[in-house]
């Protein structure tokens, strides 16, 4: 008789292969390193020590659960944000707070670490969404739809979706961006232009209004859910809402750094028994990465 290896499904059923699971205190530090490597600062004097730290952390895995390690990383990232505040996006600040949260959690007893990380993660998501909502509500040119109208007309990231939804050709949208560039830097070529007319469509105003109120609704909902003190009932709603936000928002505007950070925070705030949600956050992380692919070009290539 010939001995054969059991099939994968059979092996899993018979418990020979464990179902994949994520242990926050073991896996989150490693995922954080992957995230920070993909969004490393440009300054060599910050990049070099950070990469050295990460290399050491990957080799000496026990360092990743030391508060000292995360304190140094948070300090380096904080220095990056301080020195380049004029160009640093808000998720760079969130990287610093997250590393600080890891540092603080690892100073506690092992049985307290996950809870401390969960509390900090939940508050960070809640505060981030609260501030995002408050700024939007406090800005008149956001509430009247002007902001998304501008983004639709001039943001290259939204161009494929806008073109698909409204029928405006991508060439027209590119021409709008060229006109904006003319106002901004045409003066160096002797063209001092203060006003340009962008090509528009009545459909865009509706799309802008829909995006305006959708964003306020989803971000406001997330702020309430994550800052609400309840544990049991709200937990599933929180996870579902955050994953829905990630799947929809980052499809339209694939900002990978922010998306990944939110997914790590989402994983971090999961309770011990919420293994399925943690896997869902990992899947969302992969999905956000997939959104950064040139999907339009790939579809065109396959169609040919």
């Amino acid at each position: 008789m010939i001995a054969r290896k059991p099939l994968l499904a059979k092996a899993m059923l018979s418990d020979q292969l464990p179902w994949p699971s994520i242990k926050p205190l073991r896996d989150l530090p490693l995922l954080t390193i992957v995230l920070l490597l993909t969004a490393a600062p440009e300054q060599w004097y910050l990049r070099a020590p950070l990469f050295a730290m990460f290399a050491l952390g990957v080799v000496f895995r026990s360092w990743l659960v030391r508060p000292q390690f995360w304190y140094i990383v948070a300090t380096l990232l904080g220095a990056t944000v301080y020195l380049t505040w004029e160009t640093s996006d808000n998720h760079k600040y969130l990287f610093v707070y997250w590393c600080l949260a890891l540092c603080c959690a690892f100073t506690l007893h092992r049985h307290e670490q996950q809870e401390a990380l969960a509390i900090a993660s939940r508050w960070l998501i809640g505060l981030c969404m609260l501030l995002a909502t408050v700024w939007k509500l406090a800005t008149p040119n956001y509430l009247n739809g002007t902001f998304f109208h501008y983004e639709i007309l001039c943001d290259a990231r939204l161009a494929p979706l806008v073109s698909w939804l409204t029928g405006i050709s991508s060439d027209v949208l590119a021409a709008n961006r060229d006109l904006r560039e003319l106002v901004q830097s045409g003066y160096v070529r002797g063209l001092v232009i203060d006003t340009v007319a962008l090509t528009d469509s009545p459909r865009l105003a509706w799309l802008a209004q829909a995006m305006t109120w959708w964003t306020i609704t989803i971000e406001g909902t997330l702020a309430v859910l994550f800052l609400w003190p309840g544990k049991q009932r709200v937990a599933n709603l929180r996870n579902a809402a955050l994953l829905f936000f990630a799947a929809t928002t980052y499809f339209v505007a694939p900002v990978r750094g922010f998306g990944w950070m939110l997914m790590l925070l989402g994983m971090g705030q999961c309770r011990e028994d919420q293994r399925g949600w943690r896997l869902a956050y990992l899947a969302a992380l992969v999905l956000i990465q997939a959104y950064t692919l040139p999907l339009g070009a790939i579809v065109d290539l396959v169609a040919k």
Binding site: W85, E86, T87, W135, K136, S185, A253
Partner: peptide
């Protein structure tokens, strides 16, 4: 600008550092 400085005011106004320019 609301976009920069850690206040999480991104995607809330046209008046970002990208629309501002210097001559």
């Amino acid at each position: 600008t609301q976009w920069k400085g850690g206040g999480f005011g991104m995607f809330s106004t046209v008046d970002s550092e990208a629309t501002r320019f210097v001559r």
